[in-house]
Nucleic acid binder design. Structure first.
Lengths: 116, 116
DNA sequence: CATTTCACTTTCCTTTAGGAAAGTACTATA
DNA sequence: TATAGTACTTTCCTAAAGGAAAGTGAAATG
């Protein structure tokens, strides 16, 4: 009944990491969350705060993030109608990930510049 | 000389996060690093420890990770020749990211199951 | 001599991500 | 009346990611 695998199981870590990656995958999701958490609320503001993002990509990613309950789309019925994107409380749970990536990225860039 | 942007700058965070994402992007890189850090050294062992990965993808990602100095490919000149993949010390710097993703993924799965 | 193991590579194919450019419908402002 | 801003959508396209299946060459094992 014992298993005869010759490899070491790492599924305890691999599985949840993959679950997380599925939610925040791609180039743009974390940058958008960061922008919204920083306080950018309008479509155009978010777009301008993230260099290189196109409106098509932004619109698609905003929908994904809404589905995952990380942000919400709020329609304000003034005249003219305003649309605001706000972070959901659940977005705060991503802070440790964002901080870890930020720290690593900062250090990595330093490492690259030292070498070359 | 002041800037007249209407948005809030979040580049201090967005830029390093993007640098990090560029290195560990895709479905497979972190799972492979986790497997190698767990102690899997042989191609076939790594492959079997990560459900769903194909040899083509594994070969390609191992090369990428080697280039980023996260793992090294060691040829052991016994007869028969053995090829071992070992984590580089630099791989350890990814531990906070992996732990953050693992924690988040675990919690996320719990959240999903509670809801539905 | 046949089979198996190991570490891949090769081919073919589909899906997804992403970018460029233009357009749209509405409202506001000069 | 013309121009500009807002929040997108649409079309077209390329590149990269990823998967399935088979093959390869060397060496070991039965």
């Amino acid at each position: 009944m014992a298993n005869k695998m010759g490899y070491l199981s790492c599924l305890d870590t691999v599985k949840p990491v993959r679950d997380a990656i599925e939610v925040i995958n791609g180039k743009w999701k974390l940058p958008i969350i960061i922008s919204v958490m920083t306080g950018n609320e309008r479509f155009t503001d978010i777009q301008e705060s993230i260099p290189g993002i196109t409106p098509k990509v932004l619109a698609k990613e905003l929908k994904d993030l809404e589905q995952h309950q990380l942000i919400k789309r709020v329609v304000v019925d003034d005249y003219p109608v305003k649309i605001l994107y706000k972070p959901e409380p659940y977005a705060d749970t991503l802070t440790p990930i964002i901080e870890a990536l930020k720290g690593w990225g900062l250090n990595h860039r330093k490492k690259i510049f030292e070498k070359e």
